[in-house]
């Protein structure tokens, strides 16, 4: 009994102290006011005045501020837009790859799988950095395009949203490929044959059978890309330009440059509220899939 209590309580307390409590603090600070003090917000909890006085000083001013200053809601919208578009492109690149892997000879598949996972183990930062040298004005892509004669003037790609899209597709591709691959690999080949037997051409069989049956994989992959991209910071700050608005970047700057902790906290709380929807949908998709397998 002691042992069970110990097993449960140690990780439980750890997560309470270092996950839940910090969260409550964020929530509390988001309701506080900015102050020229250390730490730079108020009110501070004071045992003398009691909890009533403390609570009465909290308000939703920061949230009102978020709706008034158009920087914030523009940043949220632009994050959503970038996340949606880049998820779509990741799917466009990832699906044919996952399909090719699932149709590859059995003995190749572990190697292909490893090739997809390998970049995931190398540093995220380095993978983003690699594109800086490629996309810059005198970078390899421009050199190559000038050399082939496709363009006569170097294209400005780095520090634009296009560079952000490329960076996201590149770094999140494995997250898209793996769930789709596992859905496609499980697909019973006789279903495709049955569709052809019943009069489908290869293309209609793909459209009517393969796509619908890999849908759980597509949904899982899309959420695995969409959710983290929404709060992405490194890619927009390295590949994006000053016009690239993403909420992760805004939060970072609000905190480190403006030192406005209450607003940064409010930004975080709203971002989380936005994320709840896709997370719940994702969870439901995974659950449905699990039930279907049983």
């Amino acid at each position: 009994m002691m042992r069970r209590f110990f097993l449960i309580s140690v990780p439980y307390l750890w997560l309470l102290a270092l996950f839940l409590v910090p969260f409550v603090i964020v929530l509390k600070i988001s309701l506080s006011d900015v102050a020229l003090a250390r730490p730079p917000y108020m009110p501070q909890f004071d045992w003398a005045t009691g909890i009533g006085a403390f609570l009465s000083e909290l308000d939703f001013e920061n949230f009102t501020w978020l709706t008034e200053d158009d920087l914030y809601w523009k940043a949220y919208l632009s994050s959503l837009k970038i996340a949606l578009i880049s998820t779509f492109f990741t799917l466009l690149v990832g699906y044919p790859m996952a399909y090719g892997m699932a149709r590859a000879p059995q003995e190749w598949r572990p190697t292909l799988m490893m090739l997809v996972i390998l970049p995931f183990w190398t540093s995220f930062l380095i993978r983003v950095y690699a594109w800086m040298g490629i996309l810059s004005n005198e970078g390899f892509l421009n050199q190559f395009l000038l050399w082939t004669g496709v363009i006569s003037e170097p294209l400005t790609i780095l520090n634009t949203n296009s560079a952000v899209y490329i960076g996201i597709v590149y770094t999140y591709l494995p997250f898209m490929i793996l769930p789709i691959y596992s859905a496609l690999e499980r697909l019973d080949g006789s279903l495709i044959e049955a569709a052809e037997d019943l009069g489908c051409s290869r293309l209609t069989a793909f459209w009517l059978v393969t796509i619908p049956l890999s849908r759980p994989g597509i949904i899982a992959g899309s959420f695995l890309v969409f959710i983290p991209v929404l709060g992405e910071f490194v890619i927009p700050s390295l590949l994006g330009g000053s016009s690239t608005l993403m909420i992760g970047k805004v939060l970072w700057e609000e905190f480190f440059s403006n030192r406005d902790w209450p607003v940064a906290s409010a930004v975080a709380v709203v971002l989380l509220l936005i994320l709840v929807i896709p997370i719940v949908l994702f969870q439901r998709n995974q659950q449905k899939q699990q039930e279907a397998e049983q």
Partner: peptide, 14 residues
């Protein structure tokens, strides 16, 4: 296969 006047009942039913 899709143009043949034959149809197949699969072992796994498919």
């Amino acid at each position: 296969p899709n143009k043949r006047a034959t149809n197949m009942m699969f072992q796994s039913y498919a």
